[in-house]
Design a protein around this nucleic acid. Sequence first.
DNA 1: CCGATTACGTTGCAACTGCAATGCAAAAAC
DNA 2: GTTTTTGCATTGCAGTTGCAACGTAATCGG
Lengths: 217, 217
Amino acid sequence: MPKRVDHGERRKLIADALMRVAAERGLEAVSLRHVAAEAGVSSGMVQHYFRTKDEMMTFALSVVRDRSEARVTRAVSALGDEPSPRTLLRTMLTELLPLDEARRADGRVALAFLAFTAVRPAVAAGLHQESAELLAFIAGQIRTAQAAGATQTRVDPDRAAVALLAVMEGLGVYLLGGHYPPETALAALDAQLDLLLGPEPAAQRGRAAPPRRSPAP
Amino acid sequence: MPKRVDHGERRKLIADALMRVAAERGLEAVSLRHVAAEAGVSSGMVQHYFRTKDEMMTFALSVVRDRSEARVTRAVSALGDEPSPRTLLRTMLTELLPLDEARRADGRVALAFLAFTAVRPAVAAGLHQESAELLAFIAGQIRTAQAAGATQTRVDPDRAAVALLAVMEGLGVYLLGGHYPPETALAALDAQLDLLLGPEPAAQRGRAAPPRRSPAP
DNA sequence: CCGATTACGTTGCAACTGCAATGCAAAAAC
DNA sequence: GTTTTTGCATTGCAGTTGCAACGTAATCGG
């Protein structure tokens, strides 16, 4: 074998460039040459690692998914042991909202891919599984919160989970569209959590998000 | 003046073709020639009515908006005089969900435009106004429902309106992605209305939507 | 040392893109 | 009846697209 190169690393490099292009100018500006230029490589190299554009797009979509998942797990693991369902859910969902420029960029890409997969259903397979898992997890958290007796109004946990995830997605879409500022979205999200789990403990009130252990290196 | 032609009519004809193309193959497949072919006209004619592609896109976006607005007003006006806030809200929001193929097609186009405007903020101006009006209306309905004493848990109407609209948008996105069937979305929407306005009157239970006066001509 | 294999870079091509330019027919204005 | 304005079709062009083809340099197994 000749010059050994980490295939996955190169592919991720290219996918990152693709996401930068997509975040700035939309998916329709994603071409082999643009991505190559953004990544600072030749377009031949892009073709070397992705035999077709579709393959590149599919891979990039999986990177988007992985990245948001990593974001969530990192934020959640920073919560310490056995956080309350409310804290856990709030942390997860706020982490997925486009509240700063980094997440806005990711959000624009995700939204573009959402529209993309709506027309090419074959690519969307992985997304279904992820949202199903997320829904199951949220429903579980709501269930344990209800078992702890925090709420007076019992709601079906599965339906509540679907609604809660939809709230998050909808808020994200409207935030990306600039329809209202982040505070409005956060207020609505908290109101929704109040509805589902009862009013939040006074200790947490006003905290935008739990503090990070350390900034990314 | 020569051969008189209804300008607006032609433009709408072309915009309809554009939406058909966008619904089937995405906005990235929208080109002058594709749209012209779909509309059954020459590409020169398209250029005659839209001097630039951007002008055509902007107009099509406004048509999308008008169409969904018309859908809502038609469904609402079929409700009769002074429907309850809950019936009104449910009718409006259900009408906006992609529950049948016609609305799915519209939804795909709307989603594509959402991603489109997220990258070209200049085009999004009209959308902000529309969502602001919708939010104000929803908040008003929630307020009157609360004044009627239907709910025990008082929630801030403005936040509740933001959350409710976000639920609808999020459900729409997930429906378009095929993440769950329409029944799941409807169940979640009803659960949300239960949360905000209290449990629904037994008379309405299980009705998917109020019957239409007459099918479209 | 040597074919074989891998990692690129370069070039080329047919198809497509938005758009300008031109042509022309019909009908209203005069 | 001529002129002028409008509606629309055709053609052409420069730029971009995805992709195949070919080239070359490096590096390993033998």
